[in-house]
Structure formats: structure tokens, C-alpha cells
Amino acid sequence: MEKHPVYNALRAVRDPELGVSIIDLGMIRDIAEDGPAGLVITMLPTSPLCPYLKYLVAEIRQTARPLAPGRTIKVVIDMQHRWTPEYLSTEGQRYFFGGKP
């Protein structure tokens, strides 16, 4: 997934409350092809009550669209699992903890 061009583009999407990339927060859990005409991006919110879910979904779609022209972009919100700090990238860990927690 890390090599997918959409994954790298999503580094530009920041959580509006935390100011950190959704990639560094570990919110993007999967990017999968959905046949020749679709792309499915699975997102795990940092909180099940995140007030910015609609905003983040719109930003993910807008960021992915140029890299998947003419394709349907579906964003799935994973509410089956819970986000934990273990999902933070090295950069995310540095931001919150000054290094590894």
C-alpha cells in the first residue's frame, strides 16, 4: 500500500484538529483496486466521534481523484477497529512524543 501513488498523495491531507498528516496518524489502513473502474480507500478515524469525518472523506476523494481519473473513489470508514498510537508513523511519533512512545 505504501507504494501506491494515492498513498503518497494522501500525505498532504491533514487532520484539521491535530494538524498532522492522516498518513502519519496511521488513519489510512488500505488502498485497494475495485475492478478497473474503482478504488477503495479504507480509513480508520482516530476517534469514532470524530467531528471531521465528512471533511476528511471529501479531502481524501479530492486528493485521490487526479491519480485515478475516471474511476470511482470509495472511502470506507472502519468502525470495527479502534485507532491506537501504535498506528503512528515515525514522524507521527516524533510529533506527539518526541520519538517513540
Rank of each mutant, 00 (worst) to 15 (best):
G26W: 02
P48A: 12
V40G: 07
F97S: 00
F96T: 04
P36S: 02
E91A: 14
T84M: 03
S47C: 13
I60L: 05
L88P: 09
E17A: 10
A12W: 00
V6F: 02
A37T: 10
G38I: 10
A64L: 01
R61P: 03
Y52I: 13
S21V: 09
M43S: 06
D24T: 05
P16A: 13
I60W: 02
P48N: 08
D15I: 11
R65G: 01
P69K: 00
I31S: 06
R94N: 09
L44M: 13
A32K: 14
L39G: 12
A9R: 09
P45R: 10
P45E: 13
E91P: 01
Q93P: 01
H4L: 08
A64M: 01
M79R: 12
Y52P: 05
H4Y: 10
L88E: 04
D78H: 13
G38C: 10
A64G: 02
P66I: 00
D34W: 03
P16W: 14
M1S: 15
D34N: 13
L53C: 09
K74A: 15
L53Y: 05
L67I: 02
I22C: 03
W83H: 05
R61Q: 15
I23T: 02
I60M: 04
G70V: 12
V20T: 03
V20P: 05
P45D: 14
P85I: 03
G19F: 07
H4C: 08
P16T: 14
P66G: 01
I77Q: 12
D15L: 06
H81M: 12
L39D: 13
H4Q: 09
L25I: 04
I60Y: 03
R61T: 11
P85S: 00
S47W: 08
G99A: 01
G19K: 07
K54H: 11
I77F: 09
R82T: 05
A9G: 04
I73W: 07
L88H: 08
V76E: 15
E86H: 07
Y55F: 15
R14F: 10
Q93T: 01
G35P: 06
G26K: 05
T84Y: 01
